[in-house]
Simulated assay, not measured.
Amino acid sequence: MKTKVPTTHRFDSRDPETIHDFLARAYRGKVSVRPAGGVRYRFRHHRVDAGSFWLEASDQSTRLDIDVEPAAALVICEVVNGRIDRTCGAYGRFGPGDIFLVTLPDLPCSLRWLPGRVTTCLLSLSVLDRVTGTASAGRASTVQFTGLTPASPALAGLWRHTTSYLNHVVLSNPYAYREPLVIANAARMLAASALAVFPNTTAGWPSATDRRAATTATLRRATAFIEEYADRDIGAADIAAAAQVSLRTLQLAFRRHLDTTPMAHLRRVRLDRAHRDLMQADPRQETVSAIASRWGFLSHSRFTARYHATYGFPPSRTLHA
């Protein structure tokens, strides 16, 4: 999957016709907006568009009735202040702090948005398919969400933490806008969080077939693929496909033989590559943050802590040695 350089868009208007035209363009004609009583109002919108996901914040000053056509993305909303009433098969009312799926893919819905502010994440369904290993040529997504609200308050907190982390740590990192692995890993983080937070059909235990196939030969094929393609946007599903096994078989093979996960092993290989680059880099030309971002590490502080725990000294010492 080609990774897009993130772009930022801002919109601020008091004209209903201009606002409607903007939303129709922004959501490709999938939204119909009717302000209460046809009054003039103010609508402000800020979006970071990373291609495979968008992070948005919007606020407005009147009641809006909104019809949303089926979306080819997972749309997750948090009410900051105000209230949203949603009808999508069943009725739901959401106030400050509430998190919910605006609709399920391929289902229309209606919203009544009272004055206030919301944040929204739009996540490409293809990212969900890649994370779960359900993507294949000519086959529709098999990720099915069975609920529109988080499975628990703790999991709602996980979603808040994930989006806050991406907004304040990843997307504020200037290197993120140049290194495709950073944005690709951010998309995978959002997908994994959404799958953990909202009820869906992807959970399950390894079968007898999975257990028989979780051999050292499977592990060798998987680790060879990781070694060769660690600089690419790959995930567990890609590794499983290269090893010619299911995702559950792959995960079991890594647990059984290495006591780790495929993605943890990939991160360790990338850490080793970053270590090599730090040893070879000219400190007058390179920085620790640039090298960490090149290998997909989202946070400079977390990279430094992981590097120190692995090698016994900070990455800055390696760079300036």
Rank of each mutant, 00 (worst) to 15 (best):
Q280C: 11
H275C: 08
P199E: 11
R160L: 06
G92V: 05
P115R: 14
S172H: 05
V170Q: 10
A309S: 09
T146L: 06
V102T: 12
R63Y: 03
T87M: 09
G204K: 08
R44P: 00
S52H: 12
H300T: 13
L122F: 10
A135G: 11
S164W: 10
S301F: 02
A217H: 14
T87E: 12
H308V: 08
R44K: 15
P199Y: 04
H320G: 13
V39S: 11
S58G: 07
N185Q: 14
W54S: 10
L74A: 10
V5K: 15
P6Q: 15
G296K: 12
R220H: 14
L190R: 01
F198T: 01
A151Q: 04
V80Y: 05
E179C: 12
C121I: 05
L271S: 01
Q144R: 15
A90E: 14
I239G: 09
R112A: 14
F94Y: 15
D49W: 04
G38L: 09
V169M: 02
G157Q: 07
A217D: 13
G92A: 12
H320V: 14
A236W: 00
V131I: 05
F100K: 12
V39E: 15
A243P: 03
T310G: 06
S293R: 02
L181W: 03
H308S: 09
R270N: 01
E179K: 14
R86G: 05
I226S: 01
T162S: 09
Y177D: 08
D65V: 10
T120Q: 08
H45E: 12
T119M: 05
W113N: 05
P105F: 13
A305G: 03
P199K: 11
R188K: 11
S136R: 09
F297Q: 11
L101F: 02
T120P: 00
P262G: 04
V269N: 02
V48F: 04
R302Y: 06
R256N: 11
T8V: 12
H46K: 08
H308L: 07
V182W: 04
V269T: 08
L111H: 02
H45D: 15
A243N: 11
S289C: 03
I183E: 03
L64Y: 08
